[in-house]
Design a protein around this nucleic acid. Sequence first.
DNA 1: AGCCTATCGTTGCACTTGCAACGATGTCAA
DNA 2: TTGACATCGTTGCAAGTGCAACGATAGGCT
Lengths: 140, 140
Amino acid sequence: MPQFHLESFLPYELAQLSEQVSREFSALYRERFGISIPEWRVMANLSQAGTLSVREIHTRAGMDKSKVSRAAARLETAGYVAKTEDASDRRLVALSLTEAGRGLIEEITPLARAYEAQVLDRLGAGAAPFRDGIRRLLDG
Amino acid sequence: MPQFHLESFLPYELAQLSEQVSREFSALYRERFGISIPEWRVMANLSQAGTLSVREIHTRAGMDKSKVSRAAARLETAGYVAKTEDASDRRLVALSLTEAGRGLIEEITPLARAYEAQVLDRLGAGAAPFRDGIRRLLDG
DNA sequence: AGCCTATCGTTGCACTTGCAACGATGTCAA
DNA sequence: TTGACATCGTTGCAAGTGCAACGATAGGCT
């Protein structure tokens, strides 16, 4: 019988953990605000940068550009994001948060911080080396 | 301007890392053997346990049971997995690897170990605490 | 035995996803 | 200026996904 110990296989563990954490966190805002994970990511990027094109979010966040485009379309319909034609390059769409969008970010931010703190608590003293490891792998 | 630092937000980092690692690893077998990530996971579980029902893989691997069912169907068509009716409980489908399936596992296993070693190398001395952190979070 | 409820695996459905192709716009050199 | 090529965001399409509902089977209670 060939054997492969999947549950101690790093890519598998990471996938399990990532899905668990994403699910737990998105549960905090999905039902309450009606936005999905890609939508939240677009908004969080905009909250940080002010104005971004679809392409910039695609690059920053590693999201497919069609994913960004559709998330932005839904967010525009929901009133959280404004889409403007870039004045100096009309191919670009300038995305930015509306007033409602900024309000939503302000509501979610404390939830996000609290959730993150709760996760880090579970790691105790291991939190620092854990985050260190993540960053080292993400850079490579 | 409300701000939220997404790139240092743990759920986001984990999602990025997990996707990167899954993508890198699946590239090693996807094209060569024509199997997807869910299919690989089903096979790896079977290689470990010998025979499992759809429900057991669903529980073990945290995969939706329809996902398991469809992966198993594709793997049966591909000749890697056999589906048998459980003798003592006819509701159950007994999944097991075929000879071809075992051969595939034997080909992928060294690739998996090599990839994992390469990732752990990037972590150096931080590898042990990193894995520790993953396991601690997965248990909770 | 007969019924009631639980559990199994599959399937229908609506939705999301990644990829490729498209029209629109920009850039640059002849 | 014109033409060739690059880049932007959107959309069509096929495939995958989670969820709920389904028929089939099992188990327990009377």
